[in-house]
Design a protein around this nucleic acid. Structure first.
Length: 421
DNA sequence: TCTGGGGTCCTAGGACCC
DNA sequence: TCTGGGGTCCTAGGACCC
């Protein structure tokens, strides 16, 4: 029988901020998304004030001010670095690990059954806190979905950081308490449909007839049902290369000049290509999109995008920028104020699997590969954007707002925290 | 004034093939 | 009267996740 554990960092971004300012402990704290748009991380104290996850910040600004909530812009450089520390630490306790998101990882503990797993996971949580300063909760179960549910329960119970959901009688008593929309893989649409059938708890979904669920909701929900029954359908996925890579941003203010958009799009293309090369892949196609403010009631919303296929799989920033700018000219309508744009790389393949174009000189490609390697090396060592394409522009006036951002304490020499004694 | 930025998988339907 | 059967590939859209 398989055993999975899900390690989930507690309100991760808030914890990252607290790490560098202990005065924030026990105080309500929230972290905002890019462009200071939405609330994406909340301390338990902030949750208690009734600030929902994903809420637009401008709607809750008053409430935050009245209750002295400490508000931060997000600092992904900091969070990414601390996430890596957590994941590296976890590998010392279990080699089979799937990094599921910036703040979550699945562990496969099949070979650890001789241990008391609650003890072992409590030890893991303690060490992670000691080594990285980040608090984590851990759920244990015979399938990923049950491990997820177990973490959900661990988070509800502030005393215990670990919840073991392997015992069927324990499953019976707790699954009835879990709403069906809190089950991993059941979103609000499926919740609505399931509710109409009278299925409102995890237990009711688990005990529904399998073939009926499959017929009505497809294989994904069927698998979720089996997973709730302790039958593992989702396996551990380790180190998979990305199949699509997106780089996009909302702008700090509406942008209406083509030249400015060209720079932004070029910059997004460069970021995406660097990610592409980092995972040693090439892309077959690129998609460029553009949006005005889709929430605005005054203007009619405009959103458009076009895909372009490359004759030969490609990972060269300059070629991708060229293609992106061509597309941009096709979808750009003068006179509109654009709020967001982005570049997607799709149909990604391993770089090693290459088929040459009969009409492209392979030597010229080698030269370009080398150039890209040099650029990546410089930026890795000296920091992002140390060297970049002229097309990306230098002013970047479209940049997003991040008025409440703290320093990158762990990744920039000049941001290292100093303490006065 | 003000609503993020990534990702994954599945399904249905159309084009096309023999 | 009666209009096959089986397949592949691609795309758009929908659902989900953090």
């Amino acid at each position: 029988m398989s055993v999975y554990a899900l390690v989930d960092c507690d309100h991760f971004y808030v914890s990252c901020q607290r790490l560098f300012d202990p005065a924030l402990e026990k105080r309500p704290v929230v972290v905002l998304s890019n462009n200071d748009g939405c609330v994406i991380s909340r301390s338990p104290e902030a949750k208690k004030l009734g600030i929902p996850m994903g809420a637009p910040y401008f709607k809750y600004r008053r409430l935050c001010e009245q209750n002295k909530v400490v508000v931060f812009s997000s600092n992904y450089e900091l969070y990414g670095d601390l996430s890596q520390r957590v994941m590296t630490s976890l590998r010392q306790f279990c080699p089979d690990i799937e990094v599921y998101s910036i703040d979550e990882a699945f562990l496969r503990l099949d070979g650890f059954s001789h241990l008391d797993l609650t003890d072992y996971c409590t030890k893991i949580a303690g060490k992670i806190k000691m080594w990285t300063g980040i608090p984590v909760s851990i759920g244990i179960g015979p399938s990923k979905t049950l491990a997820k549910a177990a973490t959900h329960l661990a988070k509800k119970n502030y005393q215990e950081k670990v919840f073991d959901l392997r015992n069927p009688s324990v499953q019976d008593s707790v699954l009835a308490q879990i709403d069906v929309n809190d089950v991993w893989g059941i979103g609000h649409r499926l919740t609505q449909k399931l509710t109409r059938l009278g299925i409102t708890t995890a237990q009711q979904l688990r005990d529904s007839p399998t073939n009926q669920i499959r017929q009505k909701f497809g294989v994904m929900v069927e698998r979720t049902l089996l997973e709730l029954n302790g039958i593992a359908c989702f396996s551990l996925e380790t180190d998979q290369p990305k199949k699509t890579i997106i780089s996009s941003r909302s702008f700090g203010h509406p942008v209406n000049q083509l030249t400015e958009l060209e720079e932004a799009i070029s910059h997004f293309a460069a970021i995406a290509c660097a990610k592409l090369r980092k995972q040693q892949s090439k892309t077959h196609s690129i998609y460029v999109f553009l949006q005005t403010n889709l929430f605005s009631l005054r203007e009619t919303p405009y959103s458009n995008g076009i895909m372009h296929g490359f004759a030969e799989p490609c990972a060269h920033t300059d070629a991708v920028i060229q293609a992106a700018k061509k597309i941009l000219k096709q979808i750009f309508i003068p006179g509109l104020g654009y709020k967001k744009a982005g570049v997607m790389l799709m149909n990604i393949i391993p770089a090693a699997r290459r088929q040459h174009d009969l009409f492209i000189d392979p030597c010229s490609q080698d030269k370009k590969n080398h150039l890209m390697q040099v650029i990546d090396t410089i930026n890795d060592r000296m920091g992002r954007d140390s060297i970049f394409m002229a097309a990306e522009g230098v002013h970047r006036s479209w940049r997003m707002q991040a008025n409440l951002k703290t320093a990158s304490f762990t990744t920039h020499w000049h941001d290292i925290l100093t303490i006065d004694i």
